[in-house]
Design a binder for these strands. Structure first.
Lengths: 110, 110
DNA sequence: GAAATTAGTTAGTTGACACTTACGTAAGAT
DNA sequence: ATCTTACGTAAGTGTCAACTAACTAATTTC
């Protein structure tokens, strides 16, 4: 899940993911869409996306077809939704932080 | 917006952001919550978060109080929501990609 | 089976980034 | 004025990530 967020932090990968969002595409077609980058670079990005389970790979002869993995996207979305909607953890953390501030007895870190 | 996503890709910054989510906290208190990292490191993370407008800074004497900027969070959320719900762009991109694949006349990149 | 197509892999470079130590600075407290 | 507290900034280090060029591997096609 952490890997997915990190993968999405890269603009190029977001662009790639958009491409295979609603359609399965072979690596070459994807690479052709990016004039300023070589094919191996795209191949590596695809590996990162695959590793983060944001895309799936299906082999067809010499070609490898990629498509967005909507399941992982849904999970990531749920994760983020939880991150900023559910206030429970936040309130607990805040309480602990307040206590830490109050008790600054943690003087001797070294 | 891109900066915000990149800032959130770092786990430590997510933890920091969670801390100041529902409460304003001075930098020292935040740093004290992380035993394995020095205070300057936290200070730098806070600078990144502030730069991405994910937190706001308010000065109070020698202290600097930080709090999550929910506006930016809302924008980011809207951005992501759009990214994976609205299929319009995706369909357009897919159509273009299909055309690219069909017309591989783009032979001579070099 | 040789040649072409499609694609991943390796080696090496560059730049970004998280981190630490050391220092600077601004506002209260003594 | 000088300490002390609370913080940012500078400089330097190790690691990782994105990229290119060159190579390799697997499948069709001839």
């Amino acid at each position: 899940m952490d890997a997915a967020l990190k993968a999405l932090a890269e603009p190029r990968r977001r662009a790639i993911l958009r491409l295979v969002w609603s359609q399965e595409l072979p690596a070459t077609d994807i690479a052709d869409r990016f004039a300023d980058v070589t094919r191996p670079a795209i191949s590596q990005h695809l590996a990162v996306l695959k590793d983060a389970e944001l895309v799936t790979e299906r082999r067809d002869g010499t070609r490898r077809l990629y498509r967005a993995n909507t399941d992982t996207m849904a999970e990531l979305r749920a994760f983020l939704d939880d991150y900023w909607t559910s206030g429970l953890e936040r309130l607990r953390d805040a309480a602990e932080a307040a206590e830490t501030r109050k008790r600054q007895t943690k003087k001797g870190r070294k």
